[in-house]
Amino acid sequence: MHATFYIILAITSAFGILFIKRLDNPFKLLSFFIFTVLVSEMINKYLVTKIGTNFPGMHVFSYVGVIFNGLIYDQVLKDNLRDRKIVFSTTVIAITLLILNLIYLEGFFEFPSHGLIINAFQIVIFVFLTYVKLLNNNHKRAIYTQATFWLNSGNFLFYGITFNIFAFFNYLYIPENIDWTYALIKYANFAMYIFFFIAIVLNSNETNE
């Protein structure tokens, strides 16, 4: 299963980096972000073998994720100053909360569940802003031919699930249900990166037209 996940990440980031010149800014950043996800997954695996846990890596990567998502959506929503301000302030708040969480609640060697909620909270706000933008923009093209729709829906699928699981469905995380929760998150994660791949492919064609 892990191998499939790595393959999806590798293909998506390789495609993005290979056609980087044909991509718009959000999708250039997305390609680099997916590449960093791939690298972080490898580092986490190494950490497990070396120190027995990958939680420090997950902590560090939650910062990387928050910053990258802020940058990506800053570019997606660049036409609207109000949206950009929301993206900037949400990202600053998310980073502050991550630091506070690290200092006061979940240390480097604890599972960063709050970090994931913060990450999901940030993305869900961006996702709704982007859906509104898509609705208000010109409607010349079918929605499923637009790269932004796939980027947004991928994020919405994964972070919508993650946010709900960690924020509202604590019940799902009790030992009896952990396999179900893990499977749900894992498949949503697969779906998200497949959606990202579609987004990058579509954008490389959009820019090329």
Binding site: F156, G160, I161, N164, I165, F169, Y171, L172, N177, T181
Partner: peptide, 16 residues
């Protein structure tokens, strides 16, 4: 134990 997570996750996915 199986039923509740199945319903919850189906509802969640369904909502999304």
């Amino acid at each position: 134990n199986v039923l509740i997570p199945v319903i919850a996750s189906t509802l969640l996915m369904g909502m999304i």
